[in-house]
């Protein structure tokens, strides 16, 4: 797809996704029934869970495209990787801020070392390193390779982190852990809303991912042009 096409599709998807998100907000305020045991705070899940899913999806995409970039050395794969990483940081931040807001009501404390929360926190820091490495080399090509290495090692580390945080939690059991997605299936309207929200977040991510990708492509064009002028 050309850069212009990417841009157009990206804008379209972003607009649809944002409208979908507004719709999800509206539904979660005025339509969905309140969960019996957790009350109102459970509604945070309609942004938290989709944000978490998008975060993991984005970081997976980033690690995959990074590995392919090191292999094939196609500039476009690196563009995709950096775009996905940026999205992962944004949605990871949403996940990390909304989780504690829910936890304060449900568990009585802002932060717990809940496995998935911990995993996301560490991922967030791994990708902070990704951006720091990328921006601190004189030669941008080198920065891209370094960042790809960070993303790949980060992805390889995920299973270990997952096992360790699960194990660590079994050492310090939480007093009350109510996790709706582990319980019996969600009542129909809640499930519908959660799935709608998942779709909206995914579409937003894809749209913005494409826009970000187009941006990186235009930057490349700018570089090429500047080099031509210099030569």
């Amino acid at each position: 797809m050309s850069i212009t096409g990417m841009r157009r599709t990206g804008t379209g998807l972003a607009v649809v996704g944002l409208l979908g998100m507004m719709f999800v907000f509206w539904l979660s305020f005025f339509w969905v029934s309140t969960e019996a045991s957790q009350g109102v705070a459970q509604r945070i899940f309609y942004v938290h869970v989709p944000a978490a899913w998008t975060t993991f999806f984005a970081f997976g995409l980033c690690a995959l495209t990074s590995a392919m970039y090191l292999w094939l050395r196609d500039e476009r794969l690196d563009r995709a990787a950096v775009s996905a990483a940026e999205g992962g940081m944004i949605f990871g931040t949403i996940m990390l801020t909304t989780g504690p807001l829910w936890g304060r009501i449900a568990w009585g404390t802002y932060w717990t070392w809940e496995p998935r929360l911990t995993l996301t926190l560490l991922l967030w820091f791994i990708f902070l390193g990704y951006f720091m490495v990328r921006s601190s080399t004189e030669n941008p090509e080198k920065g891209k390779r370094f960042a790809a290495v960070v993303a790949i090692v980060g992805a390889l580390d995920i299973p270990f982190i997952h096992v360790s945080v699960l194990w660590f939690r079994s050492l310090h059991p939480q007093p009350v852990v109510v996790r709706p997605e582990d319980g019996p299936a969600l009542p129909g309207d809640m499930l519908t809303l959660l799935l709608t929200s998942l779709a909206a977040f995914t579409v937003i991510f894809l749209g913005l991912f494409m826009l970000r990708y187009a941006l990186e492509g235009l930057r490349r064009e700018l570089d090429v042009r500047a080099r031509k002028v210099a030569a």
Binding site: R7, M21, V40, V47, E86, F91, T98, L208, A214
Partner: peptide, 28 residues
């Protein structure tokens, strides 16, 4: 209090997403 937490959570979500939109738009 739970209501406030829900609102803050939603506000953070929308603010970050819109922030990203604006930042990409500016850079573009």
């Amino acid at each position: 209090r739970p209501y406030w937490h829900v609102f803050i959570a939603y506000a953070i979500a929308i603010a970050l997403v819109l922030g990203w939109v604006i930042s990409i738009g500016r850079r573009l």
